[in-house]
Design a binder for these strands. Sequence first.
DNA 1: GGCAGCATATGATTGAAATCATATTCCAGA
DNA 2: TCTGGAATATGATTTCAATCATATGCTGCC
Lengths: 187, 187
Amino acid sequence: MLPEPYDLLPTTARQSQTIAAGDALFRQGARTRGLYVLITGRVHLERVGPHGERLIIHRATSGTSFAEASVFSERYHCDAIVMDAGELVRIDKSAVLAAFANPDFARAYGHQAAQQVQAHRQIMEIVAIRRAEDRVMAGIVAGLLDGTVVDFAARLQLTHEATYRALRALVEAGRVNNPSRGTYRLT
Amino acid sequence: MLPEPYDLLPTTARQSQTIAAGDALFRQGARTRGLYVLITGRVHLERVGPHGERLIIHRATSGTSFAEASVFSERYHCDAIVMDAGELVRIDKSAVLAAFANPDFARAYGHQAAQQVQAHRQIMEIVAIRRAEDRVMAGIVAGLLDGTVVDFAARLQLTHEATYRALRALVEAGRVNNPSRGTYRLT
DNA sequence: GGCAGCATATGATTGAAATCATATTCCAGA
DNA sequence: TCTGGAATATGATTTCAATCATATGCTGCC
């Protein structure tokens, strides 16, 4: 099943495809066809700088959409390169634009987008915290430690080593519980 | 004038107010009234952690909206505290929800939200770059150095000292031009 | 015109996270 | 059941950005 709000679109608006590592889904300057929902695999969006530097714009992960803004644009403004093989669903630009006439879709889109913006803002505030221990604590309070510590560390823009050390310090300070290997909870 | 897409709403949906430092626009758990557009001043959104830690969720700046997700929620999930006095416009929740029935508003909202998400993703990728010099270069390529270097440094989550040093190194490496004090351009 | 405040700029020192290294546990799959 | 890979965990060392310090240029304003 597609994530909200794209589950509300008619099935004719979707087109599944498998992708192989190295594939380019689109290139900067190409006419936009729509947005994508990544089911499995990894995709990078990147732009090329004036001196040939590859600047990664976004790393799409399973279950998330990307290139949403292309729906409102004539041309893609970056390249989409498949890093790991997988599958995805392309969602037709015109179908999305048309769906905005449906208030249910429009509200679902708005809701989803507003939540995403909120989540991004919060992550950015947390990542702005300099001390690893404070950052990790904030991350836990924000509920970011749901999966593995390795994933958590990546979200906090810390190495996993620094994250483990901060977690241990927090446990020793009595601010966090470590009931079992790999699980940490607020006291 | 209000930023897109709120400029499309009827004037009856807006309510201007001046705000003083220390004011709480809303508190966590209060019934939602709508979102806000900050005209001047500074507002922090913050939540209180389980041990009383103040966790900043977002720092709103002039010309931007905040608490957008409250439109889709019954209760505010954080506090909004005025840091610097100024003025803002409150935008009625029900008016926004109703406006989603207008495809023009819905598309304008979607467009604005999609662009904002894109910008956030890009900033997060840039901030993830560890080396100050690479980070500053990426920031310039991304067009983030429009105002002062101090602002630029804050966006990159670097101190302005580190940013100046990186800029100088880039100039010395011939990757950036420094035509005059305080102005830097790609070569 | 003088002063206060801020941006620009750079040097010296410090500190904390990255990096490198290593060991153990856990889990999936052959 | 064995094996390989990843997550967990922590120690030692290094690196580089933060911090502290200082100076100058610019701007607004009283």
